[in-house]
Design a protein around this nucleic acid. Structure first.
Lengths: 133, 133
DNA sequence: TTAATCAGGACTGCTATAGTACTAATTATA
DNA sequence: TATAATTAGTACTATAGCAGTCCTGATTAA
């Protein structure tokens, strides 16, 4: 039903928590306690967000994660992209797919524009917006 | 990656084909031939679209399907809804879900608004738009 | 040196999806 | 009226992707 995955959903929860104190380091255990997600999941999400460049990490004792950018500068699209790759409503919108009817399908470019429209409307929403109720 | 399902994708192909001759009846075999989808799949899609009220059907010999409304009056959202249910980016946006952190999650309403934004931008695109390259 | 913490994979079980098949109901037409 | 064509409805299976878990290694503050 045009869903984002649970992990992606959770990642916005994690990011929102970090955004409340953008300059403070938070370790996985701390985030777990405040989001009620379990540790392996939190840990997995943090690694993915870090790999995508949205978080800064510090190893070792007293280490942890913090936002790479201020909450106003991080869009929902970026979080989505970090967790799931680019927003593309159909397979053929991105790479050459294995869709069996690709050769005769005439609406591919239309789907591409539609994806772009969705992407643009999501990119206008930032993490800072998510903090407000 | 914020994808629609393949069946939904195919359903837009089927709908586009029907939209070219909105008043003519097309049977499943004919649609199969022109879309290069296989018969069981086409058949399944047509039944779903019919059940959702987007198609009119005629049983028996010389029967088939045709659009219930003119292409300008059918939006992408309607096709999406017919195939996958309502557009809702997160589980908690629709019904009370089994999300384990629902009780402490503060960003639920935000996701609900985001879903609405996506839904609105998709509802502006009609089947008639899909016919144009 | 030690304990705390992140990094990077590998693995498993579950669920949703795609695709298929079969039978019943309906109807135009010869 | 008989027949062939066609949709309606349901059930089944195999596959792929996702959520969740676990283990081992690397890094660093104290």
């Amino acid at each position: 039903m045009l869903r984002i995955s649970k992990l992606t959903d959770y990642s916005t929860v994690v990011m929102s928590y970090l955004a409340r104190e953008p300059n403070k380091m938070h370790n996985a255990r701390d985030i777990m306690a405040h989001t009620q997600l379990n540790l392996p999941t939190v840990s997995k999400i943090l690694k993915m967000l870090h790999k995508a460049g949205l978080l800064r990490s510090q190893r070792g004792a007293n280490g942890g994660y913090s936002l790479m950018l201020p909450p106003e500068s991080i869009s929902i699209t970026q979080i989505l992209a970090a967790m799931e790759g680019n927003v593309a409503l159909t397979e053929c919108s991105t790479h050459h797919s294995h869709c069996s009817i690709e050769s005769i399908c005439h609406i591919r470019t239309n789907w591409r524009s539609i994806s772009r429209i969705v992407q643009e409307s999501l990119s206008k929403i930032t993490l800072a917006d998510m903090l407000r109720p």
